[in-house]
Design a protein around this nucleic acid. Structure first.
Lengths: 164, 164
DNA sequence: TGTGAAATATAACGCTA
DNA sequence: TAGCGTTATATTTCACA
């Protein structure tokens, strides 16, 4: 068992870690050499820190980002879902079903009047209607839905670009 | 519901492309060899298709996914924003400012009563109040905001797991 | 589709401030 | 203790046949 050489524990991220994560959050495919050069680090140091961040669970994975319009799903919407009954079994079961519905990008479980917000991508308006009728309102526990067209989604600044 | 054929990029996406994208969407760091093995392709063929998808713009990039709670931002919220004036200049300028605000993960521009939904991650309740007061309500064009705690966010099934 | 050269990643080590 | 430079080894990528 290797004694850890100060592997960055989850609670103590320094500014260097934040800059590393900031780059990786934008482009996870960057090579270790390029990353090291960009931050003025030695390659060995850079590789070590990145691995430590991975092992600490700060980096949970890497995902390819897709152009949904090019894939044939140019229409996006937010579907607000309100329940009639809030037993834990109802909520959990519905949440799983909604998240698994085809076309759902993200499913938010919220506090407030709306129980869930579904961010969905579909082919066209007809497909959107079909989605709601088929995968949302069919559940008996769903009392009400409200669907809003998404004009545009932008990635935000994220949490890393803060003043240290 | 038939997906219309007009929306596809230069090369039509076949079922193989969808399976490639499905894997890459879950783990962009998968090696070409592993990806080829998993789909029963030759490595060179697999590499060629992935590159073609990249060049076609279907894959727009790869991003590291971070554990926001471990980073020190365990609280997430949806901030609904309503405007008082909807001139194009107002909307565009505000949208840019909101998306650039620290802590914003995603910014949705919507049709309907709410103009924007901001998905934000913050340190605690005080930071959430601070975020709204400092980066949202300070803009004169903002008429009203409404903030909802996010219990949980789940990744949805996405658009690729549909019946072909 | 297959192959081999070049690039890259990984892990270990001693050294330095 | 954290960073650096180096080494050796394994793996991956990419152009070309």
């Amino acid at each position: 068992m290797q004694p850890d050489r100060g592997a960055a524990p989850a609670g103590q991220l320094d500014d260097l870690d934040r800059r590393l994560l900031s780059v990786l959050a934008e482009d996870a495919a960057v090579t270790n050499k390029a990353l090291a050069d960009r931050l003025g680090l030695a390659e060995s140091t850079c590789a070590y820190r990145v691995r430590a961040l991975r092992e600490a669970g700060v980096v949970t994975g890497t995902r390819a980002q897709l152009d949904l319009a090019l894939l044939g799903y140019p229409l996006q919407a937010i579907v607000k879902v309100r329940l009639g009954s809030h037993t834990m079994a109802n909520v959990n079961q519905l949440y799983a079903a909604l998240a698994a519905a085809p076309g759902v990008i993200q499913a938010f479980h919220l506090a407030g009047a709306d129980d869930f917000h579904l961010h969905v991508a579909v082919e066209d308006a007809a497909a959107l209607r079909d989605f709601v009728l088929r995968h949302v309102t069919t559940h008996r526990v769903v009392r009400q839905t409200e669907t809003h067209l998404v004009f545009e989604v932008r990635r935000g600044a994220g949490v890393l670009d803060r003043p240290a």
